[in-house]
């Protein structure tokens, strides 16, 4: 009778319920068939239970992604909550997979679930990490490109939270532009 189960402990609720998605590229299948919803969570405790259970991003094989989005938003440009938005993009060198990738991704997750962007946190849709042989990427997605004040505030806070040098520059790209160009050619709408 003295045993306390996790169900009896008051967990710390998050502002939003979040969904973890996993993508593994199987070229013979349509893109959407390769994307799976893993689970959702809405407490601090359940976030850590999930985080400690899944593979670190640096251990995933190439052409896999994790996405974490507010529940109900699919991790794709076409979703109505994403299509007018864009992303702050962090591009990493091959060497950074072993030195920085997991730390930067965890920091990104903590920014999201902790609502780190103050009154602009509602603008955040989610984040994506792409594991790629040519260099990994992390992106923070927001819902409306035209909300300049919100987008730049989020970018400044995000850059600071990632511990990037003040000399480093990160760019924000509209999904509408990324969808029509290869990402290496997409122009930055904002930089911080």
């Amino acid at each position: 009778k003295d045993v306390v189960t996790t169900e009896n402990v008051d967990k710390h609720p998050l502002q939003s319920r979040w969904a973890l998605w996993f993508f593994k590229n199987v070229r013979s299948q349509p893109w959407q068939c390769n994307l799976r919803l893993v689970t959702t969570f809405n407490t601090v405790e359940d976030f850590w239970a999930l985080y400690t259970h899944v593979q670190l991003a640096s251990k995933l094989s190439s052409e896999c992604d994790y996405s974490i989005f507010k529940d109900g938003i699919e991790p794709m440009w076409e979703d109505s909550r994403n299509k007018r938005g864009g992303r702050w993009l962090i591009t990493l060198s091959k060497q950074q997979r072993h030195s920085d990738l997991d730390t930067l991704w965890l920091e990104t997750l903590l920014c999201l679930i902790g609502e780190a962007f103050d009154e602009y946190s509602e603008e955040v849709c989610g984040a994506v990490i792409n594991i790629r042989a040519k260099g990994d990427k992390i992106a923070l997605w927001t819902r409306e490109t035209e909300n300049r004040e919100a987008v730049t505030y989020i970018g400044r806070v995000y850059k600071e939270r990632l511990g990037l040098s003040s000399k480093a520059v990160i760019g924000y790209q509209a999904h509408a532009d990324t969808a029509t160009k290869s990402s290496s050619l997409t122009k930055n709408k904002f930089v911080v």
């Binding site: 502002q15 976030f47 902790g114 780190a116």
Partner: peptide, 20 residues
Amino acid sequence: DKKSYDREFLLGFQFIVASM
């Protein structure tokens, strides 16, 4: 009431949960 948590608070739960 908005539920926001700073990174130190969130990190504090990492090992509590892991040890459960």
